[in-house]
Each structure stands twice: as structure tokens, then as C-alpha cells.
Design a binder for these strands. Structure first.
Lengths: 256, 256
DNA sequence: ATTGTCTATATTGTAAACAGTATGGATGCC
DNA sequence: GGCATCCATACTGTTTACAATATAGACAAT
């Protein structure tokens, strides 16, 4: 029993009353698989600075559409992880020498502050997390280059997490990625990103609540990283996109 | 005299050799008029947190197309200046109380560092710029609220510029915007963003190369800003409800 | 009055076709 | 052989139309 259709209705509604958005699904584009895939590919150095990120190829590699890819690339361009050139496409960002130095300087400032804050608010849970990570880093397979890179990055992220400031955590994440790009652009071939002993030392100082010591160690650690790069630029070959993302996808599926 | 059309051509070209992008027009989306318009509207507090940013209306207001608007909004969402909710649209970002505190903490860390760096590399040009700004700020019309807000923001940007680190400058810009949003969300009505005397003091300390004094003054200045906001919210209801039902759920699980 | 359900409208999201631009070889000329 | 020009291709950028979803009022029932 359908009711009669409404008879009176203004053809144009008056300005609708504004309703605030509240408690809604807050899924960010950062969780997007395409964004994550490209980010991990970069942090694992499978994607090198200057590599072209063709829209069609990415769409095929990820099994999605071009629009989706464009959105992801635009987001990464906003974060200075890819560079978009009009009518030519998107490329993995290649920082200038000056920018690389600025990135390291920014990390010294932010990460010395985060390590201090981490010590201030260190509790049982934090200690456990830190110990757990240090064990994983100690006993990991040093021949698995990709796992190595992921683990060393995770240490710095963990410290930022322990500091308990989400804004600084985001900034640290961003700076770490850009550090990867800076190192990939200017590294001498064959050297690791982090000296292998630095993390256990810093971790121990945090656990001992030696604030001055930890700050100094972190400062020195980042200085050491910076001293491994040189203003020469060598442009390497670029790997095939499909192969990279197929393997990353397989790993993600295996891990999940 | 047109030549005969080429007769032999492989239907599919072999993978084209990769050419690196070099020395190209590097116009960023940050220069986009839509992005700039929304940013200045926010920093001048004409757009308040939670305000809806409809695509069609913006397109009409700026005299452009929806796609263009979408790109701009996506960029601003990446920078956490607007919040995008699926199928509902874009809104001016409204930080949580915790996030607001984190923003101020981050600013204390970064801006004390920038003010120190600014003193270290202060030269004639820098001194002149600083003096010029201080004069403008001293003699500006205090009744023009929008000019006031722009000027006070420019002071902090100028200090970041003098520090000579572009990465930190970007971060400061971003944090200042998010500070505007935090203040707009939690301010007591009628109070200004910055205390009017702080900037001349800090500027004088920089010119006198008093590093410790300038750092302390900047730290105090940002603390003062933070103390003007209060966690009062009109929408505590939502949190209350979720808290209630979370507890009920916990009881149910405990009973079952 | 309050609540629930329905529907037209508004608005956002997506797909596909089209247009514009760069690219890399091929051609022709010197 | 070296160099400028030209064109087919591939790619990016934009427009258009359409589909999916949310919104706010109207009506009905309690």
C-alpha cells in the first residue's frame, strides 16, 4: 500500500543546515595498498630515485584503475616522496644535495627531542617493546638486505612512538622516508644505511634512562649516517615495476 | 612535399630506454590558487574547523572545474588541513585535544631549534629583514584582525627562513597552519593568537645574538599560546556514548 | 509529540572516452 | 656520418556522463 506521492515540495531547498561530521570512519589514504606498496618499495630501496612511475603500469601491477593510481601518486607527491612533472608523469623523488643535508639536520633536531621524551615517559610496556625490537634486530639474518632495511627503520619509528607525540611521529616517518631517498641518491655503493652497532647502544641508554647519553648517541648516529653520503650523483638502473610489486604483494600476503 | 609514409615499423616498440627527468619546470601544487585560497582563509580564520568544503561550491567560487578542486582538496587532506570523509565530502580539519597539545609540543621543539639556527647564521640581510618585519608589526593597524593574524604568522615563518633549512621551514609552515586550527577549535572567544609583546622581545634577542635568551623566550611564547586553549568541547556526547557502550561491552564479555 | 520509513534532491565517487603533449625512432638533406 | 625535421606511438591530463551514497524533509504510525 503505497502512499500518495508528496504533493508540495519546493523545487529548490533552502540552504541545508550544516551538520558537523562526527565519529565517522576515518580511513586515511595512507592505508591504501598502492601508497603502502610504493612506500615500502622505496624504503626497501627497490625503487630508486628517478624511477618512472607510469600510471598504466602501476594500475596493471596493482590490479586497479588509473584513477586510483593517480590519487595515490598525488598523495605521495604532496609528501615529497614522488615528483610529478606536467605531461611527463611521476618519478621517485630525488632530493638535491642541499635538501639531503637539511633532512639530516631536521632529523637530528627531532630525533634527539623524541629520544629525550621517550626516556621521560618510558614505562613497563615501552621497555618491553624496546627489548623485543632489539632482540629481533640482534638475531635477524644480515644477508636479507630487505629485512635489514625494514628493521633498522623500525627502530627509529619505535623511539618516536615511545615519545608519545603523534605529530612528531608523523614527521619522523616522513623524514625517514626522505632519508632513504637521500641516501639512495648520494650513497657510496655497498654501505649500509645505519652502522650496525648504533641501535643497541642507543637502546641500552634509553633503558638505563641516561638522557644526556642517549641524546648524544642519537645525534652522533645521525651524523654518522650523513657522513656516508657524498655530493656525487650516480644514476643507477631501474628495476621493472611489475616484478617489484608482485614480490612485495606476495610477501604481504604471506605475512598477513 | 610530403614524404612517403614509413613502411616498416614494429607494431610494438621495444621497451623505451629510461630517461631521467632533468631540470624541468618544478611548479608544485602548493602554488595552486585554490590551495592558497583555502590556506589563507584558514590562517585568517575565515574558514572554521568543521566547515564543509563542497566541491561544486568551491568550483563555482574559484571559477574552475570539480576535478581541479578535488586535486586541491586531496592535497590539503594529505597535509591534514582538511578531513575527507567517504561519500560525505571534505571539511576543514578539526584536531583532537591531544593532537592540539602534540602540535604545540612539536612547535616548541622545532622553533627553539630554528631560532638557535637563525642566530647562528644571522647576517646583514637577515638583520635587515627582521628589522623590517618588526617595524611592520609595530605600526600595523590593530583593528584589522585579518592583517594582524597574517603578520603574526609571518614572524614565525621569517625566523624559520632565517634558519636556512628548507625542510624545517616546510614543517614550521605546516605546524603553524595546524596551530591555527587547534586555536580556532579550542580557543576562548576573543583572545588573540599571540601575545602582542612577545615578537618584539624575541626579535630583539635574535638581533642581540642572545641564543639562550631567544630560545627561552620562544619556548615561553609558545607555552603561552598553548595555555590559552581549553579542552571544552560541544561534542563530548559522542565520546560519552562510545565510552558507555564500550564499558557495557566489556561487562558483557566478562559475564559471558 | 516522537519515532520510523520513504523519496527526491544534492553531492560525491568512478568509469570511459577524448584531447593534448612528449618521446624515439625514421627519414631526408647537407 | 651528422643534423634537423617529421610522425606514429604511448602516455598523461581533462571532460563527460553515469553510478552510488548520503541528506533532509514529508508522511505515517504509535
Amino acid at each position: 500500500m503505497k502512499r500518495s506521492r508528496p504533493l508540495k515540495r519546493k523545487p529548490k531547498r533552502p540552504e541545508p543546515k550544516h551538520r558537523e561530521p562526527e565519529a565517522v570512519d576515518l580511513r586515511s589514504i595512507d592505508d591504501d595498498p598502492v601508497v603502502q606498496g610504493i612506500l615500502t618499495a622505496i624504503s626497501q630501496k627497490r625503487l630508486k630515485p628517478g624511477a618512472k612511475l607510469g600510471e598504466d603500469k602501476l594500475a596493471a601491477a596493482f590490479g586497479t584503475t588509473r584513477i586510483h593510481i593517480r590519487q595515490a601518486l598525488a598523495h605521495l607527491a604532496s609528501r615529497k616522496v614522488v615528483m610529478q612533472i606536467p605531461n611527463r608523469g611521476a618519478f621517485v623523488y630525488r632530493p638535491s644535495w642541499e635538501e639531503a643535508q637539511d633532512i639530516f639536520a631536521a632529523r637530528r633536531i627531532i630525533e634527539t627531542a623524541t629520544v629525550a621524551a621517550a626516556i621521560d615517559r618510558l614505562d613497563k610496556t615501552g621497555k618491553a617493546e624496546l627489548k623485543a625490537h632489539m632482540e629481533r634486530e640482534a638475531r635477524h639474518d644480515r644477508n636479507d638486505r630487505w629485512a635489514s632495511l625494514s628493521l633498522t627503520a623500525e627502530f627509529h619509528i619505535l623511539v618516536a612512538k615511545l615519545a608519545g607525540n603523534r605529530v612528531l611521529l608523523e614527521m619522523s616517518r616522513e623524514l625517514m622516508l626522505r632519508t632513504s631517498l637521500a641516501i639512495a641518491t648520494f650513497e657510496q655503493p655497498g654501505e649500509p644505511d645505519c652502522s650496525p652497532d648504533a641501535h643497541p647502544d642507543i637502546g641500552a641508554l634509553i633503558l638505563a634512562r641516561d638522557k644526556a647519553g642517549a641524546i648524544h648517541a642519537m645525534h652522533h648516529h645521525i651524523e654518522e649516517m650523513e657522513q656516508r653520503i657524498r655530493p656525487q650523483e650516480g644514476k643507477g638502473e631501474v628495476d621493472e615495476l611489475t616484478a617489484i610489486f608482485q614480490e612485495i604483494g606476495a610477501r604481504a600476503r604471506a605475512a598477513g
